[in-house]
Computed example of a mutant assay.
Amino acid sequence: MIATQTKQTAQRPRVQWGSIGKYAAFVLYTLVILLPIYWMVRSAFAANNQLYTTPLVYVPSPTLENFRTLVDQVPIVDYTRNSIAFALGTTALTLVVSYLAAYAFARIQVRGSAILLWILVLSMALPDVGTIVPLYRILSRFHLLDTITGLTLVLGSTLTPFTVWVLVSFIKQVPIEVEEAARIDGASLPVIFLRILLPVTTPGLVTMGLINFINAWNNLLYPLSFSVSPSSKTLSVSITEVFAGYSPWGRPWELIMAVGVAMVAPIVILMLFSQKSIVRGLVGGALKG
């Protein structure tokens, strides 16, 4: 009898309190992260008179009136087109320049190249606000103020150091003997890039392309500082323009949240379809570099 009870006790699954605590902490952390997103979506689709009601209406009747008002007040279509051009241009420029620089750092053996790479990486510590005045003077001298080209060049130079650092790890995965054998067989440098290096570095290029696109899409500092007319302003600038006509004591939070939804929705969709590629690229570069 005692042996049977002991056997039944041994077969009972033990409660893993450590795992329960981890899952509970994860759920709590997820709720904290999702709460601002929920509130933004809720406020964007709620009528103005439902924002401050007591008791609070957690699921108000959805309406598109806030987005209609936003379109009438701000040239959203032009700003969205500028944001797409700005983000795509910055991503393409950064990848091309960074890929060539990463190949040079990974393959050309020059004394002090490692120090130069670290100096390039440490340049990311320079605050963007501290470079506004010199960048403004440079863009003004070359007549690039209030242009998408100027914004693309400025942000591309900011995103290049981290992109170079990541791509160097991927290029070093390819043994240099493979390239030397290809050169002996008569392969040119473009052929080596396309047929040897590109298949290995594709995860890194995709990852950094997505990250740079998101950074450019969300960037507010440079468009706000270097853009004047609607021909170069981006969607992020519209957050600052919805305050026009409102007193300092009456902020149009419903319009601000509508702009937030318009900016976040494309990024959320992009992340849902590419999160595995981002993780694979970053982890692959970190583990194999």
Rank of each mutant, 00 (worst) to 15 (best):
S98H: 03
L116I: 08
L197H: 04
T163C: 04
P203H: 12
T30H: 12
L28N: 08
L205H: 02
L139S: 01
L167M: 02
L287K: 15
N66W: 14
Y222F: 13
V133Q: 08
N49L: 09
P161R: 03
V228W: 08
L122R: 02
L120W: 05
I148G: 00
V242C: 00
K233V: 15
N66Y: 01
P252S: 14
V261G: 03
L155T: 00
L272D: 10
P161K: 04
S83H: 09
P134S: 07
P62S: 14
V129F: 07
V191S: 09
F226P: 02
S238H: 01
G250H: 08
L224R: 13
I115K: 14
L139C: 05
N218D: 11
G289C: 13
L194P: 05
L144N: 14
L153A: 05
S236R: 02
N66T: 09
A3S: 15
N212D: 12
I76C: 00
P230S: 13
L189G: 06
T69L: 08
I76W: 02
F26M: 10
V57T: 13
L139F: 04
E65S: 15
Y23A: 08
A10K: 07
L122Q: 03
N212M: 04
S231Y: 05
A10Q: 05
L189Y: 09
S274Q: 06
L145Q: 09
Q109C: 07
Y246D: 13
V96D: 11
G204D: 10
F213L: 15
N66D: 09
P248K: 10
S19V: 08
T53G: 10
A182K: 03
A104E: 07
L35Q: 10
L255V: 10
N66E: 08
F226A: 14
V96L: 11
S238A: 12
A25D: 03
A10V: 10
G21I: 04
F170K: 02
S274Y: 13
I192Q: 12
R107T: 08
A125Y: 08
S169Y: 07
F243K: 00
D128Q: 00
I211R: 00
T158H: 10
T131F: 02
V259F: 01
S113E: 12
F142C: 11
A92C: 11
S19E: 10
I2M: 09
I132H: 01
A244E: 10
L120I: 07
N48Q: 09
T69E: 08
P134Y: 07
M124F: 05
